[in-house]
Nucleic acid binder design. Structure first.
Lengths: 218, 218
DNA sequence: ATTTCATTCAATAGATTGATTGATTGATGT
DNA sequence: ACATCAATCAATCAATCTATTGAATGAAAT
């Protein structure tokens, strides 16, 4: 009576949760949702999905309890759910990097050409010393919703023609959405090619926020 | 060129990993594999699956990099993979407990009837004081492969008729395979009904081992 | 009240996954 | 070489999942 039936039910429940993360598009949606609240339309655009398709994936994520929603006028805003969702996604990424050679290569690829990463701890230290320039290479809208304290915002594709805005002589730390966002790595490559000293932040904005560190909004 | 294609590929890879955990039977197999090396036949029996079915699930887990194998004579032994698999499973369980009311209830159900859980930290403290009896309620074979230092082994279904072996006067901490293994909760209920002071270990043997704490083998 | 817009629902077809069956492989002992 | 045993493979059918389409909500604006 207490036996295996109950265990079966429990494992089936947990499996449902795992399956909710078991699709590339949903993981991408999660990654974007992790940046902050986003409308369905926006998320569909960011993930390159049709509206209806994005909506369905998002609803599945909501049923699984990975995201939550709120209505704002005629839009529905999705956000990460309350529970320990970010740690779960992080654990998943960690194992993926550890196991799959191809994921590791692809991630390493964005670190190639001498693009070293800086850890949160080291960055905090450097921020305390005021010896570093923070560069947020995400689009303005994302920057406006929250960014690291004191960061400059120059979206990736504008960086080349706005290089002059960056003060010389200090190291620059670029960051982006997350470990799989290539913008920051590209930015670092570009900066180095132009004589700057630059590194990328190991993780990205969502991990920073998830760690409970200070965030500034426009 | 660096764009969304690469991200799509990465997320698809990671999703594959998540999907590997997306089936109740596979989670159950993982739970048993987490106890130590097991043959396919044994795992099939433990999970209540046909041999071929278990074999296929296990192979899928291996392809996903969640388990590894080794040949021993004519048997193939499965074990957890090297990477951070246990933390991922733990994160998954945590979120499941947090989100799904039914999982929480089912887990709570095994704690009902005043069955309180003791944390690893508290248990370590009590072990240092020598003020506690450890009771491993798993089957002998599992006990033989590794158990908490100094633990007694009385499999769940034998407990009732072997109560006399337990010294009175000291609190008993029962443990089992993991948080969803009901044997330890049942054991605690039985012990209390017979006048013992008893609690169950919050997690189970695999978590103990995963935490790097001392383990003893027969 | 009607229009507009963002989102969701419903239905469909194609692809993937899961359990079962029986055959096959690979290692061991006679 | 042969028989035996554990595990895997191959083929099948049912069940589930995914993307697309077009229709239906439901909240604001005119």
């Amino acid at each position: 009576m207490t036996g295996p039936d109950i265990q079966n039910r429990i494992f089936a429940e947990i499996a449902e949760l795992a399956r909710a993360m078991g699709h590339g598009h949903r993981l991408m949606l999660l990654e974007h949702v992790a940046q902050g609240e986003r409308s369905v339309e926006r998320l569909a655009e960011l993930a390159g999905l049709s509206l209806a398709n994005a909506s369905q994936h998002l609803q599945l994520l909501r049923r699984a309890g990975l995201v939550g929603t709120r209505r704002d006028g005629k839009r529905v805003l999705y956000r990460l759910a309350d529970g320990p969702v970010a740690p779960l996604l992080a654990a998943l990424r960690h194992l993926a990097e550890h196991n799959r050679a191809d994921v590791r290569e692809l991630v390493a690829g964005s670190r190639q050409a001498g693009v070293e990463a800086i850890s949160r701890e080291e960055l905090l230290e450097r921020m305390r010393e005021n010896s570093v320039i923070l560069l947020d290479v995400r689009p303005q809208e994302e920057f406006a919703l929250g960014h690291l304290p004191g960061a400059l915002n120059i979206p990736g594709r504008e960086l080349e023609r706005r290089l002059a805005e960056l003060p010389a002589g200090q190291e620059i730390v670029a960051y982006c959405r997350g470990p799989y966002c290539v913008f920051s790595a590209e930015a670092v490559a570009l900066l180095r090619a132009n004589g700057f000293e630059a590194r990328k932040l190991e993780a990205g904005f969502p991990d920073w926020k998830a760690a409970g560190l200070a965030v500034e909004a426009a």
